[in-house]
Design a protein around this nucleic acid. Structure first.
Lengths: 147, 147
DNA sequence: AGAATAAACCCCTTTAACCCACTATTACCC
DNA sequence: GGGTAATAGTGGGTTAAAGGGGTTTATTCT
């Protein structure tokens, strides 16, 4: 099972190709075959999910009843903004332009590991996300119970 | 099970490498394979957790629901500021620059044992942390129930 | 058939992983 | 108690790989 940790700053090239950190590629399960699903994430980022982990998630999506309008909308928002891709020989994947736009990414990119997936951020967006006043790491930790 | 105790003063070299006290290395469980996760700790220190202990913690993190914004923020703050590393032949690990910055560590380092993990401090930060007025060892003990 | 788009291949620069060397302290033995 | 040997702690250099960019070849749509 993958366990992505850490943060890396990369640049996107003119073709929308993004390097996957070598550390993360090494952490991939062999079943993943260097293949990912890139999808819209929460809080204006993108999620990069190894295909083996994605399949688990997809199963849950399939179980959503499509007789409910809310479910239909959520499904469309998710799947329409998702893309499957495999690393090229240089360890890069191509991110579709509409996803880059959703996350306000132009050239500078921050990739962070979040255990079973990675997140792709515009570095400034990420900084703003963290800088919520009165919400320090210690503050949040006090309110979260891990057991 | 590991049981780290005591304190040690070391220096960080130009490459961000830190010696692990030999006493602590000998206290490691064989399953740990001399491998640690360094992560952001509380109160401006870093935590150095043997990989076998980390896995227990990671399981708890994975159970946090990511549909809640607060949980996502906490997860990111934790995993993006974590790094897995194995001791080199000299018994050192490399601490990423962004973690050193979080803990205000430049060269002088204090390593303390806290049972199942170690903490890495800037010695002055640690001293200030202890010197909180009106918070003597005895005062704190009054408010803590151990049974 | 030609143009546009995307995929595959290749190269260069920089970084970090790995290896070796030295000093000082501690432990052990005579 | 002094000498010796092992080990702990620190420092530096070399090399392979990672990251960033460009060029050519295939493919698809017009």
């Amino acid at each position: 099972m993958s366990s992505f940790k850490g943060q890396f700053r990369y640049t996107l090239d003119a073709k929308g190709r993004l390097n996957i950190p070598a550390k993360f590629r090494r952490a991939l399960a062999p079943e993943a075959n260097e293949t990912f699903v890139v999808k819209r994430g929460f809080d204006s980022c993108l999620e990069l999910i190894p295909i083996d982990e994605w399949k688990i998630y997809e199963e849950k999506l399939r179980r959503l009843s499509t007789t409910k309008e809310r479910n239909r909308r959520f499904l469309r928002m998710t799947t329409a903004n998702a893309s499957e891709d495999t690393c090229d020989k240089q360890g890069r994947i191509t991110i579709p332009a509409e996803l880059l736009k959703l996350a306000n990414i132009e050239k500078e990119v921050l990739i962070i590991g979040v255990l079973d997936k990675m997140e792709i951020w515009n570095p400034e967006t990420y900084q703003k996300h963290l800088d919520l006043p009165g919400e320090s790491y210690e503050d949040i930790a006090e309110s979260i119970s891990l057991d």
